[in-house]
Design a protein around this nucleic acid. Structure first.
Lengths: 201, 201, 201, 201
DNA sequence: AATGAATGAGCCTTCATTCAT
DNA sequence: GATGAATGAAGGCTCATTCAT
């Protein structure tokens, strides 16, 4: 058997196990929160041993961090891809609301987990998240800057754009994910309009 | 010594002890979260015994609930008092933003605690919170209804008013309480205008 | 009931519990070593709860340290008391051997534990042990100094006195405690003479 | 390629790997003790896999035993070689002290490991060690016997010779290996004289 | 011979809660 | 009302060992 195939098969197997642990952990975290989830819960539902979890993630916190980081990265990547195709400021702003609403509906458990504030990450993970956020926000500003410059968007304090554009839909989505109200899909136009009104010139 | 004076003195002492436990608990909860705070942490910082906490609150959850409920009640009471004096829809809507921003700045630790999503309350406490919320939201709608009826405010799905009006400032405040950005006081006009634009007819 | 009597009764009870844990721990440590002894072993044999051990000693290491320190202190105290009554250098030197031999035979388990080298103490405990050793060795030198000065004992490098005087009996005792050879009592004269020959002028 | 050369090359490689594991294990054991050293510690520092260690030594205990046994054998072999050339009882006795002191200084980590009492060996290994010790002590007595017979050495209980001759230098060396005092080389004459005085007729 | 993912028994420790004083 | 020693269930984590490749 060629070496490369053996390696890739092994890697695939390893990856499969890691993915399986992560997706099981997500279910547990989404249902009961990180604190209330025990390693034993994950291990039983993922059909693996305690040791395997520690072998791959080092600690329970390690699982929570890996899940959080990969979730944020998927969300950010999707958002940037979506915004990349926008032609105007208005399209951009509204797309933020649309994408956030759609993505949350498609990835409810992950969205719920990313909203939760009950995780205390390690300094290393916080550093990592900061740099991910910085890279993301930089890219976002790069995409919006032209529309501020050509006068389509208002000139505002930098840290207000995000809350003004996505604060309302985020709050609505958060409530929906906790079981209140109806799907964001039905009201996203409303929130997209509000977002646009909040930042248009 | 008259009985009543003795009683009231005792009651005052008791109240003082309870308040001291609550305020210490708030500090702990705000710093490390409810889960991460131990009875021992509170007891040491409040200079009281473990038994005292149990005598007054029955359980750790009891402390967290008492704190949460009294916090929500203070916030709601303040908001209603503020809105009670408003003459127009616009004043009402903007006042929500102003008050939220001001109150959070004046009660940072409490605001932070009320934002945290890591508390799993008892069914009894949840029932209590629901009824408090219902009473509050009913009163809010009663205050806003005239302005919807007289055409000053748009007719919207009921559950969208709150996110549309306060979602953005809440998101901004949450970030500020976590150490990002500058005081809401400096940008509250912006968010008040956005709120008004989102719901005006 | 007078306050002081209540207090002293409580203190006695507490002390009793602590002592009971310590003596049980000694049995376990002497039988299987510190590493091989589990908290559960101690707890079961001391008829107390896990929590009690942690309440009083903080950790398994805490138990091992408390036991070690109190053992060393008892040994040192006894030795100093014994040497305090000696009139000559020869009596002093031989008394070290006698006392060491006698004490080890009377406190076999403790002696065995103090000999064991498998404990890794906390920095705090090491500091404590160092200062205890310093105080002890200082006192020892103070007792021997006159006999060096009056020419009864040889002038030797300071750190060689202890090994020269007690190295042999210690080695013999160690072997006996591990099950080899016969009681030190039967040969202590031999080792006392050897000690005296090693340091006499 | 001739078969034999391939084999010996393989054997050399294997031997090298085994040696590398042993010497790494020694470093770990000397630094943190056997119990506190994990297979993972050794594997990482020896740049080999977990499986390799098990392939060559069967278990962690197997490593500790192999190391201990080979160490004892080296020490014993060296001692016997040294004593083999002695012409008198005095030379013999003093040579024990000299050799012990020199060997410990040349093999500090191994000496430290051989001193440690925290290893619980398998019955098989204990049997092995006993027979090694028996062979050694027999040989030692065979070397000393003539000098007891010719009246140069005192007639003493058999089990006292070793402690009387090497107890003091062992104790001194042990302390030096733990970081106290100065090199045994500087005081070995002193201990050799004391040893001689202790057993001479 | 080498590799390293997988296993799981067992350990130390935490901490909410109780209760006798 | 106050105190704090005692309790013990439960959890996170370690690590020697196995085994398929």
């Amino acid at each position: 058997m060629p070496r490369s195939r053996a390696n890739s098969r092994e890697r695939a197997a390893t990856t499969a196990r890691k993915e399986s642990i992560l997706s099981t952990a997500l279910e547990c975290f989404a249902e009961h929160g990180v604190e209330a989830t025990t390693i034993s819960d994950i291990q039983a539902r993922a059909h693996c041993s305690v040791g395997s979890i520690y072998h791959h993630f080092g600690s329970k916190e390690g699982v929570a961090e890996a899940l959080f980081i990969s979730g944020i990265e998927r969300l950010n990547r999707g958002m940037l891809r979506r915004l990349g195709g926008c032609q105007s400021g208005q399209e951009c702003v509204k797309s933020v609301v649309y994408f956030y609403s759609d993505w949350s509906a498609r990835n409810q458990k992950l969205a719920r987990y990313l909203h939760s504030r009950d995780v205390e990450f390690s300094p290393a993970a916080r550093e990592r998240l900061k740099s991910i956020h910085l890279a993301y926000i930089t890219e976002i500003y790069r995409l919006f800057a032209p529309f501020v410059e050509n006068g389509e968007l208002r000139v505002l304090p930098l840290e207000t754009y995000v809350p003004l554009i996505s604060g309302a839909i985020q709050e609505y989505t958060r409530r929906w994910l906790s079981g209140q109200g109806s799907s964001p899909a039905r009201v996203k136009e409303l929130f997209a309009d509000a977002a646009w009104n909040a930042v248009k010139a």
